[in-house]
Design a protein around this nucleic acid. Structure first.
Length: 498
RNA sequence: GGGCCGUUAGCUCAACUAGGCAGAGCAACUGACUCUUAAUCAGUAGGUUGAAGGUUCGAUUCCUUCACGGCCCA
């Protein structure tokens, strides 16, 4: 519990603020203009060191003070901006008594603007020699410790700004996350895909099997659902002639939180007319490998101690073969629901009440096979009853032209040739509605307007969703989804005094 | 939902199988110091040990409940 005495540190800083204010020192000015970022200045040093002196040219640099080494009448400060770090040397005889007196009252964490020339210290480090120093923003709380930083995961997530400030590797992860998205975006734009945005609030949540979050529109007097997937809207766009579309945006699923699940997460979904699921597998191989090379420099990556080779081609196995070959299920059981239920029971796997054969198969797969798929693997031939939006296989009518991609024991992507036969789609929805009535709360809802769109005609199309958070985990070698989401979901902290 | 672990100064951690005045480093404050870079030296201050209850002469320590978090499982 923070008491008045415990916040002595805070109190000291508040006193400083009062002191500075009473001396007419602006605490939050915005009129300082920088001449260079730290990185730019370091570039100048690298290119033209002989042209630099204590007096010429004069640079103006701004940043947060991350360290101060004081020596009575002089001090070294370490400044940081978004581009890097450098040190400046503040001498009383250079900046004058008044500025030095101000500087004496500053703290680690304050933002300063330093103007001056460059010199080299005894050890050869190029240092900004302050001719003038200004306070740009007063920090009234102490930063975490300089050496050990901020480690407590709860504090890191709740105060991510401190995490980013103190832990450079965290900053790197989020820079890489941005680069991964950028790589994917340019990959798709290069292939003539159009980036679009579709509703996050939907009257009928569709496109995935998941429980939605409910919200309410006051003026319309109706409930709406945060989307669990954009799929049905993106396919309406394909009907509308936008033959190649993609969206990178948030989905919301009302389920548990774990190292693999956050209630809101980011998905890439894309649709390509006149393509099949085979085409998308090839595209995915290329897209993921390219993103990997872009952020890690190689298509062979290391994930939690495992070496993973993302170079093409990737292994492709049917769901049935995976279950028998990798999962160790006897082949004759694949069509024997009771036999599979027995296997499930033996492995302590709970199967949903409705328990259609396909559900049992995929559930067994999740437990017996998925964790073993370390190298990139496409699993194909998913049963129709667990793939209500996928096109049936022409050769095997019980399965669909669908694949899921697994890397490092996790599902990364899910794609299929789209079901564009409105009659078949209606039938599939009706089956889902039956499942829902039988107690499966994640089963799809009937969406008449979507079927109507299909009735106008959707060209043969293939579509895919890629989990951006999981892909980022893979490419940044992080074990928890919380490490790749800036503000992962947390229960509200007990608010303490102070 | 279940199991295990954690929560002590602003931050990082001690205080042990034994229940006995709650400590250190960094940060802060005072002083010295014009080439430091985890600066150094001397000194000072900082705590309702996550919350509530219980056992006990005495609880950071043992017990119960709760909150939050982490890992694993469902």
């Amino acid at each position: 519990m923070k008491t008045d005495t415990a916040s002595e540190l805070l109190q000291k800083r508040r006193e400083k603020v009062l002191q500075l204010r009473s001396n007419q020192i602006p605490l939050y000015p915005n009129d300082f203009r920088i001449s260079h970022s730290i990185e730019e200045l370091q570039g100048i040093i690298a290119d033209d060191a002989p042209g630099l002196s204590e007096d010429h040219p004069v640079f103006a640099v701004a940043g947060r003070m991350m360290a101060i080494n004081r020596f009575g009448k002089s001090a070294f400060i370490r400044m940081r901006d978004r581009t890097g770090q450098m040190q400046a040397y503040i001498r009383k005889d250079r900046v004058g008594d008044e500025s030095y007196e101000l500087f004496r009252q500053l703290d680690i964490g304050d933002f300063v603007g330093v103007t001056g020339g460059m010199f080299q210290t005894r050890t050869g480090e190029w240092t900004l020699l302050a001719r003038d120093l200004r306070l740009l923003c007063k920090s009234t709380r102490a930063l975490p410790e300089k050496y050990h930083g901020l480690k407590d995961p709860e504090k890191r997530y709740r105060r991510r700004y401190l995490d980013l400030l103190m832990n450079p590797e965290v900053r790197d992860i989020f820079i890489k996350r941005s680069q991964i998205i950028q790589a994917i975006r340019s990959f798709l734009l290069d292939r003539d895909f159009l980036e679009v945005e579709t509703p996050m609030m939907q009257p009928i949540p569709g496109g995935a099997e998941a429980a939605p979050f409910v919200t309410h529109h006051n003026a319309l007097g109706m409930d709406l659902y945060l989307r669990i997937a954009p799929e049905l809207y993106l396919k309406r766009l394909v009907v509308g002639g936008l033959e190649r579309v993609f969206e990178i945006n948030r989905n919301f699923r009302n389920e548990g939180i774990s190292t693999q699940h956050n209630p809101e997460f980011t998905m890439l979904e894309f649709y390509q007319a006149y393509a099949t699921h085979d085409d998308l597998m090839a595209l995915t191989e290329e897209m993921v490998a390219q993103a990997a090379v872009y952020v890690t420099g190689s298509s062979v990556i290391s994930y939690q101690g495992e070496k993973i080779d993302l170079s093409r081609p990737w292994r492709r196995i049917s769901l049935g073969d995976a279950l028998t070959g990798i999962g160790g299920v006897a082949p004759e059981l694949l069509t024997d629901k009771q036999g599979l239920l027995d296997v499930a029971a033996r492995n302590g796997i709970q199967v949903t009440k409705t328990g259609r054969l396909g559900k049992v198969i995929t559930k067994l797969f999740d437990v017996l096979v998925e964790p073993k798929l370390i190298q990139p693997t496409f699993i194909t031939e998913y049963p129709v009853e667990v793939s209500p939006l996928s096109r049936r296989s022409d050769t095997i009518p019980d399965v669909t032209e669908r694949f899921e991609l697994f890397i490092a024991g996790r599902e990364i992507a899910n794609g299929f040739s789209e079901l564009n036969d409105p009659e078949d789609q209606r039938g599939r929805f009706l089956e889902q509605v039956k499942d829902r009535e039988a107690g499966d709360e994640e089963a799809h809802l009937m969406d008449e307007e979507y079927i109507e769109a299909l009735e106008y005609g959707m060209p043969p199309t293939a579509g895919e969703g890629v989990g951006i958070d999981r892909l980022t985990m893979l490419l940044t070698d992080t074990p928890s989804i919380r490490e790749v989401i800036l503000f992962p979901h947390m229960k509200p902290a007990e608010r303490r005094k102070g």
